[in-house]
Design a binder for these strands. Structure first.
Lengths: 204, 204
DNA sequence: ACAAAAAGTCGACCGCGGTCGGCTTTTTTG
DNA sequence: CAAAAAAGCCGACCGCGGTCGACTTTTTGT
């Protein structure tokens, strides 16, 4: 009977991802080998590579799920009508808390997402797009409330905010910022700067 | 006679770095194996690891030199009295051109510098500091010329600009920006935003 | 001057991520 | 329903980055 094949594939894929959640979550990405993963998923090593091109691609797939959670958590903490900076802070700090809980993880995810290799570019873009969508929604709301200029490209605004988040996380990874509060403080300051502008007040 | 040892060490270290410049520059970082490097430097594999902790550390050492060149090139193109955005663009685009010429390279360098592992944090900080110094100098000048607010922490201003550069490079790696001109355009726009601010013009 | 100690060198070896050709299972064809 | 074709699965195998203990060279102590 036809269709058996497709069903099996779906199941196998799920088994691999399930094993990944288990093992990555348990002992970390770096300390989980593909062989272990294959064993745990009950398939051969080669099979894994017919579902995913690289180890990090498995990781990104795994992260898509995790990110959903973060989004949900953030949505819970602040509504769509809060002030823009408040929403941004909730969004970014929600992610940051995730990163702090999984430092190695987070580094890898960020590395792949921000400076992807050719092989993972597509997956990174997917993740990135869901990011941008989320931020765009926030910004549109803010524009309607008059908290944000309307004569700017939303993509660039989102990029701008995102950039500030990244540099802050980077500062944390480089040990320039130690505590969560340090990070929050720095990020808020940077966001403030971006809103107010850096020109002297008697401006052009 | 004493001192023979020290001299030899210095020479060996130089030989390794020299071989790295040669091979990394020639066939790229990823496609150069430690074994090759060892052969080319005329030492054993293990020896290399008594001079550097990881392959990427060799790379960072190598990059310190390269960066010097970029700085020099930039200094040549624009003086310290040019408008701030012009200086920033020259500085960042100088680096970007380097990155485009060595895509794999650049990715690795950025990954290590922005999201360093514990092992390379120190080296990354060194590189980063030289960055910040350079940017700080530009900003101080701009402040004196009245192109930049004085009531802001320079570190955060530099971080802000740097963040915008990074997100732009990231967009390039993700294939959202293709040509050098695209990148320059996007970066200039973002810098402009940061100077003018994102608040509506009837602002707080 | 020589032996003991310290420092430095080396390549066989390890487990890893990733590949590939042979094998099994499913689907298609007449 | 059998045989050919297509699709999927597997694990031995590859070169890699990195480790380690045996070995060599330099320094130190007497």
């Amino acid at each position: 009977m036809a269709g058996v094949r497709e069903e099996k594939k779906r199941r196998t894929r799920q088994a691999i991802l399930q094993a990944a959640v288990q093992l990555f979550g348990d002992k970390g990405y770096e300390r989980t080998s593909i062989n272990e993963l294959a064993k745990a998923a009950g398939v051969g090593k080669g099979t894994i590579y017919s579902y995913f091109q690289t180890k990090s691609e498995i990781f990104l797939a795994f992260c898509e799920d995790e990110l959903e959670q973060v989004y949900a958590e953030v949505a819970q903490k602040t509504g769509p009508d809060a002030r823009l900076t408040e929403q941004l802070m909730a969004f970014f700090m929600g992610q940051f808390r995730y990163v702090t809980r999984h430092k190695d993880f987070g580094r890898l995810l960020l590395r792949e997402m921000i400076f992807p290799k050719e092989l993972t570019v597509e997956r990174s873009k997917d993740l990135d797009n869901s990011y941008i969508d989320y931020l765009s929604a926030m910004c549109t709301g803010a524009q309607e409330r008059g908290e944000l200029r309307r004569d700017v490209d939303l993509l660039f605004v989102c990029g701008h905010f995102y950039a500030l988040y990244l540099i802050t996380v980077s500062a944390w990874y480089m040990d320039r910022l130690q505590t969560e509060d340090d990070v929050a403080g720095a990020l808020e300051l940077l966001l403030q700067q971006s809103l107010e502008g850096l020109l002297p007040t008697g401006r052009k």
